[in-house]
Simulated assay, not measured.
Amino acid sequence: MNDKKLMIKSKGILNQIGLLGVIAVLCIIFTCLNSTFIAAANLMNIVRQSAVMIIVAMGVTFVMISGELDLSIGGVACLTGMVVSKLLTSGVSIPVAILIGLLLGALLGLFNGILTTKFNLPSMIVTLATMNLANGSASLITGGTAIYNLPQEFEFLGRGFIFGIPAQVVFMVILVIICGIVLSKTLIGRYALAIGGNADVAKLAGISVIKYKLLYFVFCSLCASFAGMILTSRLATGQPNLASNMMMDTLTAVVLGGTAMSGGEGSIAGSVMGALLLTIISNGLTINGVNSFWQMIISALILIATIIARRKKD
């Protein structure tokens, strides 16, 4: 068992070194193509752009390590953004609206977890249904139109600064540190790896598989809800089509970071670097005038290539 853990850890480290190499090469290429890429303002913009994806990736990482998938994150983010926007324009205070938004996320995560664990349904199908449920509900709230005139104070989440650093970046860094500690130093993280490695063996070892999977699904949806509020704050409007690419981008980032889709393997650092890599590609292509539709195609191709490469290694 120790040899297996050492092998997985070594593979994860090698994957992270490889990602760093790719990031470095891409930065050199994009800088040669357009010198503004390496400007301090653009580098900070890359970190800011990646912050939301990294926040969502934290939750997805735990779910995937435990051997499940959550495809509902984009819908959860969208619905949360619309509900919070509706509450704010109805006179509800910002703290209460944010709390309700997080509670909504937790309930959707619990819904995913219960259907997956208690009813033994495939998480991919369950969360795909939840995604459509959430997206449909978001459009029904206002008939598919945007919500405007949000309180200016709410914009702090997506546009504010803390000691000169974008607030969303500060939130992201805090969450990454906490998740890194939880995954590597606590039973919650170790159990995720054990459950994803072999749920039956984990159950025989006395681990409450259902309880911990519920926890991972709830946490994942909480991250998506928080991300949805940050995006809504950044746009200063509630958009019924918010986070349309969140699911594809985040899954690609997590898989790129070395998290196995079959579970039992993954890291917080890897997911962060995967998200940064995708953001660098998107930013570099945008600076050089590449159409956004091509960026979507490239993201999909990267995901497919990564899955094929990992399957061959396994």
Rank of each mutant, 00 (worst) to 15 (best):
M1E: 12
N2P: 00
I13A: 07
G18K: 06
A24P: 01
V25A: 15
L26I: 02
C27T: 14
I28K: 09
I29Q: 14
A41V: 14
N45K: 11
I54Y: 04
V56E: 02
A57P: 08
T61K: 06
D70F: 05
V76S: 04
K86C: 08
S90V: 10
P95D: 07
V96S: 05
A97P: 09
L107F: 15
L110C: 15
F111G: 03
F111I: 10
N112S: 15
I114G: 02
K118H: 14
T127I: 02
L133P: 10
A146K: 11
N149K: 05
F161G: 05
V170C: 13
V173P: 04
V176F: 11
L193D: 01
V201Y: 04
V201F: 07
V201R: 04
L204C: 05
I207N: 02
A224K: 02
G228H: 07
T232A: 09
T237Y: 02
S244R: 08
N245P: 01
N245C: 01
M248F: 11
T250H: 15
A253I: 06
A253E: 02
L256D: 01
A260E: 03
M261C: 03
G264N: 01
G266R: 01
G266E: 02
A269W: 10
S271D: 08
T279P: 12
T279C: 15
I287L: 15
N291I: 04
A300N: 08
A305T: 10
